[in-house]
């Protein structure tokens, strides 16, 4: 006891505050402890570390992309573009912004068709994902709690295995002498000749739905799981059939989950690169492939940057909506 009180101001081995420390807190400098908490300089440091990292490695790169998208392409330069900002000898800053890359984006038929194709693929993949994912999420949410975790685990498990390898698995299934054709053609004789499924839009849809299905199911599940069953019972007591009560109660309530899941599928699907390059058509590019070809094959950095900026502008509204929902979800958890 003696040693504890000599050791000021501290706590004893049980974590209790010594009386003198309490005394100091009450009669010492005004609001001493609050001062430590509120104006702790370490707090600023803690904020600064992730902030700076994201500014330097996430925001600044976009500004650079924006800058280069307005630069002039010089095929032999290293790097292959003319500087946008240049100090002239008279002490003047010369800024040269070209909108040529952007004009090209909207005039070149190859580009325009790539945009429309990407949007079409992303839209229909999202719809297919929803059509398959909604009943699955619903079934999981309705199953007994002990089964739920196992089922959820089964949904998440493929997500932990390599995305690239899962897409590759479809090559083995879809190609002309692949598994599906063997079953349909050789064993069952349902088709007269092997179906050409590789390098088609169909294969891209399969690939995207397959890869992004967990992203659709999980937000839907976490929404459906929270539904109050008494509402459905009330609907049925009032004479609504199962379909009607689903359409009038469950579906409207699950709208936030539908939006979140759809955005999680749609946004990455627009910019999908791996799936179309392994499974997709060779005569029809998607935007991401266009960007990487422009960058790696043609070394046209300004055009690649312009494609990136245009894609970002296209996706900025869905991304903002997604963030809205994400924040709401976190707020709801807090309550």
């Amino acid at each position: 006891m003696k040693s504890a009180s000599r050791n000021l101001p501290s706590r004893d081995s049980y974590g209790r505050v010594s009386p003198l420390w309490l005394f100091l807190m009450r009669y010492g400098p005004p609001r001493w402890s609050e001062y430590v908490v509120k104006n702790w300089t370490g707090q600023r440091l803690v904020i600064a570390v992730p902030y700076l990292w994201l500014l330097i490695f996430f925001l600044v790169p976009f500004l650079i992309v924006l800058k280069i998208s307005f630069a002039e392409f010089s095929p032999l330069g290293r790097p292959p573009y003319e500087p946008v900002f240049r100090w002239l000898e008279e002490g003047a800053l010369q800024i040269k912004l070209l909108i040529g890359s952007y004009v090209y984006l909207f005039n070149e038929p190859l580009y325009v068709s790539a945009w429309f194709y990407s949007l079409k693929v992303a839209f229909f993949s999202t719809v297919f994902c929803l059509m398959l994912g909604y009943p699955m999420a619903y079934a999981i949410a309705r199953s007994p709690p002990t089964q739920r975790n196992v089922l959820l685990l089964l949904i998440i498990l493929p997500f932990w295995t390599s995305f690239l390898l899962r897409v590759y698995a479809w090559v083995g299934l879809l190609k002309t002498d692949g598994l599906i054709n063997q079953v349909l053609f050789k064993w069952l004789g349902l088709v007269d000749e092997p179906l050409a499924m590789m390098n088609t839009s169909f294969a891209v849809y399969i690939g995207i739905v397959y890869s992004y299905l967990p992203f659709m199911i999980l937000p839907l599940y976490s929404n459906l799981e929270k539904h109050d069953n008494t509402l459905l019972e009330a609907a049925q007591d009032l004479g609504a059939g199962p379909i009607k009560s689903f359409l009038r109660v469950t579906l409207p309530l699950s709208f936030p989950g539908v939006v979140a899941g759809s955005l999680l599928v749609f946004i990455p699907a627009v910019g999908e690169y791996v799936i179309p390059s392994l499974l997709g058509r060779t005569d029809q590019l998607m935007v991401a492939k266009l960007l990487s070809d422009e960058f790696f094959l043609n070394r046209d950095w300004p055009k690649a940057s312009a494609v990136a900026i245009a894609m970002l502008l296209l996706l900025v509204v869905p991304i903002m909506v997604f963030q809205r929902f994400q924040n709401k979800e976190l707020q709801a958890q807090k309550k």
């Binding site: 904020i47 600044v60 790169p61 910019g271 690649a304 894609m311 991304i319």
Partner: peptide, 25 residues
């Protein structure tokens, strides 16, 4: 900061890749 942290979740990978490369260059 909240925006900066959630944006990479949905950013198409080609855009992230291109912008990072241009930063490094």
């Amino acid at each position: 900061l909240q925006g900066l942290t959630t944006a990479p979740l949905v950013m198409p990978e080609v855009i992230t890749g291109l912008s990072m490369l241009l930063l490094f260059v």
